[in-house]
Design a protein around this nucleic acid. Structure first.
Length: 245
DNA sequence: AAGTTACTCAACCGCTATGTA
DNA sequence: TTACATAGCGGTTGAGTAACT
């Protein structure tokens, strides 16, 4: 009995992730899937704790992530879901394929909350605030529309991913036309069991947000095509001897 | 151009739920 | 049954950047 703690803080790197770290994590997960976050940083050669790796993958590196702003329809839906579910961001995020709970939470706190206040609505109760000073013109929108913006960061990251795949000799995989992330996950039990609420199912219609002129993230279905370099089964024997922290 | 303020969002912290020895 | 590890969640922070003076 008695497992080792997930990580200690000594010697662990913190703060923003570098491209190199992203490459290591992506490379490792593409080849091995996700089985146990605790040992991911060790095997991937990262000075991060497993928790940090998990967060980075889920919130930023996951191939099915939908980037860019929320549409007014999305915002309406978030408000409606929030009125029913409260601050259960993961539940709300499960209604938005490709969106993370963190992303929705941030959007709520920075945009929607403010809009609701300007419209005289209490963001907690969703009921009108009895305060005329907070009323504003219904058509007034404090924030410019930000939907469907593909950021430069996306392209920078995408380019770096392409470089990585080229380094791995996988550039030809970018030409695979069929996209079905769910099938790729079905073939990889360790991936499909990671987080059902953040299902990595992605349909072609759902991927329509992707810029036409770039290599889209949906081509990450290479997950299905990569031969594992190191099967997870092999890690089981190593765990007790090699991963004490 | 420089300084200040406001805003965004990635990342961290701490907690709970669940699984396991 | 108990104690502990791990995954996941929600709240919060702070670095980076945009907007403003």
């Amino acid at each position: 009995m008695g497992r080792k703690p997930c990580c200690d803080k000594i010697g662990m790197k913190r703060g923003p992730w570098t491209i190199e770290e992203d490459h290591k994590l992506i490379n490792f997960i593409l080849n091995n899937g996700i089985h146990c976050w605790r040992i991911v940083p060790k095997l991937a050669g990262l000075l991060r704790c497993g928790k940090s790796c998990r967060l980075r993958w889920i919130n930023y590196l996951r191939p099915d992530l939908k980037r860019g702003g929320f549409t007014p329809d999305d915002e309406d839906r978030i408000i409606e879901l929030h009125s029913r579910l409260g601050n259960r961001w993961s539940k709300i995020a499960s209604h938005f394929p490709g969106r993370t709970d963190n992303e929705i939470k941030n959007h709520w706190n920075t945009k929607i909350k403010r809009k609701m206040k300007l419209l005289g609505l209490d963001p907690i109760t969703h009921k009108p605030i009895d305060n005329n000073t907070e009323q504003t013109h219904p058509n007034q929108s404090p924030d410019p529309p930000v939907n469907a913006q593909a950021t430069n960061d996306d392209h920078v990251l995408l380019n770096s991913f392409e470089s990585l795949f080229e380094d791995m000799g996988m550039e030809s995989l970018f030409q695979i036309p069929e996209t079905n992330m769910s099938s790729s996950l079905a073939s990889n039990p360790s991936m499909s069991s990671v987080d059902e609420s953040n299902s990595m199912n992605i349909s072609t219609s759902e991927s329509s947000y992707l810029p036409e002129d770039s290599t889209s993230f949906e081509q990450w279905n290479v997950l299905d095509m990569v031969d594992p370099l190191v099967p997870w089964d092999l890690f089981g024997n190593l765990q007790d001897n090699s991963f004490h922290l």
